[in-house]
Amino acid sequence: MNYDMNDVKKIHVPTMAELMAKGEQPDVLFWVGCAGSFDDRAKKITKAFVKILNHINYKFAVLGTEESCSGDPAKRAGNEFLFQMQAMANIEVMNAYEVKRIVTTCPHCFNTLKNEYPDLGGHYEVVHHTQLLQSLIDEGRLTVEGGAYKGKKITFHDPCYLGRANEVYDAPRTLIEKLDAELVEMKRCKSKGLCCGAGGAQMFKEPEKGAKDVNIERTEDAIETSAEIIATGCPFCNTMMTDGVKNKEKEEQVKVLDLAEMIAQANDL
């Protein structure tokens, strides 16, 4: 994606510490997640989402260097100790800031913060960025026009931890509709959606012996729809699908984009 480099108007990203010093509270804490903070591809999603929030003057803040891994990969890999250490440290930070509402672009963080933190003392209202974007559109705070996406064939890959794990299927699809694009479903979608292969800490290890990599199998589903864009809502799915498209040598025909990126771009942000 090409953002206009001449756009000198700098976007300010406030941290919780900064707001606290001013005695302010944001409307939402943007939990960036490790991928969104460090991974080059995922950082683009982070930046696109921040641009949208900034564009509508939504009052948000990040934890910055006070954020730490949510613990999801540790937990799914079986390291409950490490998970709980991470969770409790994060909860301590967030409770000190009296965080009430969290938005995140990572379904893994979303799931962990929403479902696994409460037992450990972290009670927050947690939403996925596609849900926040949908509600901002519904409230009329954010307007979206199709722009470059108008009429394009787009398929949505359901992230396991957004879809099956938390039954959020509609928000991302509504966003595709708002882009005036044509949503084409893969043969396996929603609760039957096939995993991209990254979950359960698989992202960080070589796959076990098999006939094929999961992301290739899933990319084939997507290519079968002859969509021009594979929309995702997860930085890990994004990587897996991008690799799959590369492997199939379809980079020219098929793009893999996060919904935040598409909305930012449609709004010329």
């Binding site: 490790c34 903070s37 260097t65």
Partner: peptide, 16 residues
Amino acid sequence: NGAPWQFSAADRLKWK
């Protein structure tokens, strides 16, 4: 480092 990769925690906000 508080992340699954070997990045320094101090760089967490570099993207901004």
